[in-house]
Computed example of a mutant assay.
Amino acid sequence: MAAIPVTIGARRPEPLASVALLGDEPGDSGRPLVDTHGRVHRDLRISLTDRCSLRCTYCMPEQGNEWLAKSSILGTDEIVHVARVAAAAGVTTFRLTGGEPLLRTDIVDVVRRIAQLRTPDGEPVHVAMTTNGIRLPDFLPDLQAAGLGRLNISLDTIRRDRFRELTRRDRLDDVLEGIAAAQRSGLRPLKINAVAMRDVNDDELIDLVAFAIEHDAQLRFIEQMPLDAGHTWDRARMVTRAEILETLSARWELTPVPGRGGAPAERWQLDDGPHTVGVIASVTAPFCGDCDRLRLTADGQLRNCLFSTTEYDLLPALRGPGLAAPPASGEGARDAAIETMLRSCVLGKLPGHAINDPSFLQPARGMNAIGG
């Protein structure tokens, strides 16, 4: 099957000339997923749904959302099928995202089946999740038993009035209960993600770090990115990496932690440890040169960059010409088609997201539809 990327915007498309189809060279299957810039891809972020129980202002509108068609959402078997092929190609970490992944009724089954996968070396894969925490108390024991290894919980403010205004929902108590459940669970490292926004929560940076320390968690600040559904992102309202570090330095001595590797967050020790804080500076200090991530949207589209305007459609490989779930026969052919698309997506990856280039265009999809 030819790997045809679908361009969903007008930014520079990935060059088709660089795309090698599976079978162009003997022995492709089982080789690592390496792009034309030498980056080895070991992380697949799988969005399970575009729906969410919150309506954060920087992510989606309060009303009028155009949700993905139910028929286009990947089923459990399809998600696991893609994950299995990816693991065979060297992917070692699978992060489940959304929307809000805990809205999937089959979430425990998804975690269990992915956690059973092995890398080519026979090692178990790592399964992580990014969540708003609202349903964690109900699901966390079963998720741990199923093989969930790491958690990131989103929390931009610990002020009740501000939380209600920012998320358009009065659910702070539910999120705090989820964080408390995660603290009791023993899953470590436990990370709390906060988007830093000017005149919104930039007066809470120190308080948020202190809150994370109290809950044995690592706070990770994220520069606000142009990923809102309404395309209203304003660079002037973004709190930069430099500003975040300057604010935190007034309270703690910050010491850089070496060995970042492909992780999106730079980390600093607070007063020589043991606690740390992270900053994900996708806008002012891009880390594209070490990026090892791919993304799979809830409707079966592969993306090689969070800001890409090109997607690679896996539905034909998974469902066949009729786009209905195929019978169990023909597994080998479907595996080959999925691997072809994975490798084509990786080979089409640009050196960077060009967010600071005048030609940059915001992706058509919002963050909830792309997956975190």
Rank of each mutant, 00 (worst) to 15 (best):
P351V: 02
R11E: 15
A333L: 11
I338E: 03
G147S: 03
L44S: 00
M197C: 12
T340F: 02
T36K: 05
R113Q: 11
G27P: 09
G332M: 02
L296R: 05
R235G: 07
L208T: 02
A194M: 06
L155K: 11
E223Y: 09
L205C: 08
R51H: 12
L151E: 01
D203K: 01
R171F: 15
T76R: 11
P137C: 07
D173G: 08
A69I: 13
T255M: 13
S185H: 14
H275K: 12
D216G: 10
R365H: 09
T131I: 03
L148C: 01
E66P: 09
D234A: 08
F211T: 06
P26N: 10
I370G: 04
S47Q: 04
T49R: 04
L33Y: 07
V40F: 02
H231L: 02
L187F: 09
L176K: 00
C305N: 02
V239G: 01
A217W: 05
L33V: 10
R31N: 00
R104W: 12
E25D: 06
L314C: 05
G261L: 13
T7I: 08
L140Q: 02
R365F: 07
T284D: 09
P351D: 06
G366T: 07
E253Q: 12
D202V: 06
T232K: 14
A128F: 04
D170V: 05
Q218P: 01
H353K: 12
Q224K: 10
W268P: 04
A250G: 14
H37Q: 06
V125C: 08
D299K: 05
L140A: 00
L22H: 05
I79L: 10
R164N: 13
E78V: 12
T7G: 13
V257I: 06
A145F: 02
I4H: 10
S154A: 09
S47C: 04
G186W: 00
A328P: 07
G371K: 03
P141T: 13
T167K: 07
I79W: 01
G147M: 00
A86Q: 09
L16S: 10
T284S: 15
L44F: 01
R171Y: 14
S282E: 06
L254T: 13
S329R: 14
P189Q: 12
L187W: 00
T93S: 12
I280L: 06
I73V: 14
P26R: 07
S53Y: 00
A354F: 15
S72V: 14
L96S: 09
A20M: 08
A17F: 13
T57E: 13
